[in-house]
Amino acid sequence: MEKVAVIGGGSWATAIVKILSENQSQVHWWMRNRDDVQHLIHYKHNPRYLSGVQFDLHYVKPSNDMKAVVEVADWIILAVPAAFVQLALADLSEYAFEGKVVVSAIKGMIPKQNILITEYLEREYHVPNSHQLVIAGPCHAEEVALEKQSYLTIGSHDIQTAGRFCELLNNRYVKANPLDDLDGIEYCAVIKNIIALACGIARGLNYGDNFQAVLVSNAMQEIKRFLHLIMPMHRELSGSAYLGDLLVTAYSQFSRNRTFGNMIGRGYTVKSAQIEMNMVAEGYFAVQSIYELNKKLQVDMPITTAVYLILYEKISPAVEFEILKEKLK
């Protein structure tokens, strides 16, 4: 029985635990909230997210003890918001992941440091690239809970390790495939959340489907320019790890970034939108990181810039989108 640690108590962490446990992996599930752990032990479901999913406690072992959860597992899956990674891992020693494979299910960057999760793990915990994977693809947690057909891409510099991890995920409603583009997949997963914010803002401003289609197609070009400069290699950006993930995040009713953007477009302040959602929209933090990173790169990224100016410089969404629409083709 494979031993896997899942770090995080949100909807995506819950969906991942569902997939792994149904495939009869032993899942050591770390959740910060002690009451949630006790609820899960007694009632066999997460009280906060995807509460309709029932877990078999023969395979799922909930815990508040981060060190114990990490120590016992061979695979470590990080599924907390990027802004809270440092806090979540704070009690671990710098060599806590030695000999283990660490999988990032996080679609964000470390705020202020403006680095990817994989870069942070290598810098702070000495996890080599060969022992790191990233999960990407159009796969909302809510649809996993409903057992809707979903596809995942596992990015890695070591395609064999990625393939082994795919075997842990594959089941009747999830299909996982390995891909040797760790960095490109991770950057794309970050930027697509920013684009989803833009799509939500556009919808909140009453722009229609025609405009959103142009917005998404221009966003794909924006992503292509960025990836070509920061991490050049041949990529099929029409693949599900890139375009597929962008599309579902830009259009889906389950996209929290799109929902957050929609509220901003309708006139909510950032703070009021965050309070009402009670969930983390990764794109809010990601856009600042990408914008700061791009000050050095100087890639033409008009959509990213527009979202940044709206969220951080408090430019009127209506005014900024009037400017943006003249830059789209």
Rank of each mutant, 00 (worst) to 15 (best):
L152A: 05
L168D: 01
V270Q: 11
R258Q: 08
T249W: 01
Y242E: 04
G184S: 03
L197Y: 08
A273D: 13
L247A: 03
K175H: 13
L237H: 14
N193C: 04
S272L: 09
N257D: 06
N257H: 11
D183K: 13
G204K: 03
Y268I: 04
I154P: 06
K192T: 00
R258K: 14
A162M: 05
R256K: 07
A213S: 12
G200Y: 14
I230T: 03
L152T: 05
G261S: 10
A196R: 00
C199I: 08
K192C: 05
A176G: 01
V248M: 01
S255N: 07
M233K: 15
N193T: 13
A162E: 07
G208H: 07
D181I: 04
I230H: 08
Y207H: 08
F226V: 06
I264L: 13
A189F: 09
K271P: 00
I230P: 04
A202Q: 03
C166V: 11
D183H: 08
M231L: 12
I194V: 15
Y207K: 09
C199S: 12
K271M: 12
M263E: 06
F260C: 05
N170K: 06
G163K: 06
L205N: 15
Q253P: 02
A162F: 08
V190F: 12
G204C: 07
I191Q: 07
H234P: 03
A196G: 03
G155H: 01
I194S: 08
D209G: 00
K175S: 11
I191E: 09
I185S: 01
L246R: 03
G200D: 08
Q160I: 13
R164D: 13
Q212L: 12
E167C: 09
L205I: 09
T269H: 06
S156L: 07
A219D: 08
F165Q: 07
I230K: 10
D180L: 01
Y151I: 06
S272D: 14
N218C: 14
Q149M: 15
L243G: 01
I230M: 11
D183Y: 15
I264H: 02
F165M: 02
D209A: 08
T161A: 15
Y187T: 01
Q160V: 14
A250H: 03
A176Y: 05
T259A: 13
I195A: 08
E222L: 10
I230N: 14
L169N: 03
I154Y: 09
L168K: 10
G204A: 10
F226T: 00
S272K: 14
A250M: 06
E186V: 05
D209K: 15
R258L: 15
M231F: 06
S238N: 13
V270T: 09
Y173F: 14
F226H: 04
H157F: 10
G239C: 07
I223R: 02
S156A: 15
V214W: 01
E167P: 00
R235F: 10
T259G: 01
K192Q: 12
Y242N: 13
Y242V: 05
D183F: 07
V174H: 12
A213I: 10
E222Q: 12
Y268Q: 09
D158M: 05
H228K: 11
N206W: 05
A198Y: 04
L205S: 10
